[in-house]
């Protein structure tokens, strides 16, 4: 290795260029995926709107895709979806936040190593298993004995909401815990030094400081609840209806898409095309929620 053999000028090898291009293309797969999703949903939905008026679709409250007379009021599915998501949040927000506070401010390291895995296990359970749990346990052994056979059936928005709530609790807990732990120790100590109790520190210092992460986690959880398929498919039944009664059987947007796919529906038929219009509605709703959650994080991010 003499100096002469090692010139300072050197053309960048072609392989380096090729590698960079390949890496870039891999990163661009995400954009292609997004464009693909939007393109498929929009084109197929436009096809559907040739037959069904978009106004009827977005304002109607009756949905009947297979049984005549057909009705295409997506609000029936939207209401089912929102009902299930709302029940889920009613369960998951307190459970998730209490668990987050417990992990961030109360639990000793040893207790954490026991409690964290419980949450992670729940988060890792395939959602179909939670659907099974709803049908085989929540409904027959919890809800029916509690509310009476006359008041609630084997399939209900409530049963679906409960298992979806269970499913999104770890999400709220882990994101909220992260943002609570990010609150500097000094802020806590300042409050303790003024004679605050632990609960007061949590409520008046930690919670407000971590609020952006907490809000973001709740919105993300809402988006997740709206998009969940397998758990609700088994639990809530298949009865699209515009209702806010949690004991009723409903159908969510995801469950409708799943049901159409499960059935023998011909791919060119109008029922099948409605799947894309429902998909676009679902995609739009979750996209808005995800954007809001990102915005909340950026807007209210506290710099410590």
């Amino acid at each position: 290795m003499t100096t002469a053999a090692r010139p300072l000028t050197r053309h960048r090898p072609l392989s380096e260029r090729i590698i960079e291009v390949l890496l870039f293309l891999s990163a661009a797969v995400g954009v292609v995926t997004t464009l693909g999703i939007v393109a498929v949903l929009v084109f197929e939905t436009l096809d559907f709107f040739v037959v069904v008026s978009p106004i009827d679709f977005f304002t109607g409250t009756f949905w009947s895709a297979s049984i005549l007379p057909r009705a295409w009021g997506v609000l029936a599915l939207v209401s089912g979806t929102v009902l299930v998501a709302a029940i889920a949040l009613v369960i998951a927000v307190p459970l998730g936040l209490l668990a987050a506070v417990f992990l961030a401010d109360y639990a000793s390291p040893r207790v954490r190593t026991v409690v964290k895995p419980i949450l992670e296990t729940i988060a890792g359970i395939p959602t179909i298993v939670l659907g099974f749990f709803a049908v085989n346990f929540i409904s027959p052994q919890l809800l029916i004995p509690l509310l009476g056979r006359n008041n609630i059936g084997g399939f209900s928005a409530l049963a679906g909401g409960i298992v979806v709530g269970l499913l999104i609790t770890p999400l709220i807990a882990s994101i909220s815990e992260d943002s609570m732990r990010a609150v500097p120790r000094g802020m806590r100590e300042g409050a303790y030094a003024m004679g605050a109790t632990r609960f007061e520190v949590v409520r008046k210092v930690v919670f407000p400081a971590a609020i952006s992460g907490i809000m973001a986690s709740i919105i993300l959880a809402m988006s997740r609840a709206i998009g969940e398929t397998m758990a609700v498919l088994l639990a809530v039944g298949a009865k699209p209806q515009f209702t806010i009664d949690p004991t009723e059987s409903v159908q969510t947007m995801t469950a409708f898409i799943a049901a159409i796919s499960l059935g023998e529906t011909a791919q060119g038929s109008i029922e099948f095309k409605s799947l894309f219009a429902v998909g676009l509605t679902l995609f739009g709703m979750t996209l808005v929620l995800n954007l809001i959650s990102g915005w909340v994080v950026r807007k209210y991010r506290t710099a410590y």
């Binding site: 010139p7 000028t9 053309h11």
Partner: peptide, 20 residues
Amino acid sequence: MLDGQDLFAKEVDPVAVRRR
């Protein structure tokens, strides 16, 4: 200047510089 070559010259590759 490293051995009479300017390390800031346009055609000089930083990777090659670091080898020396």
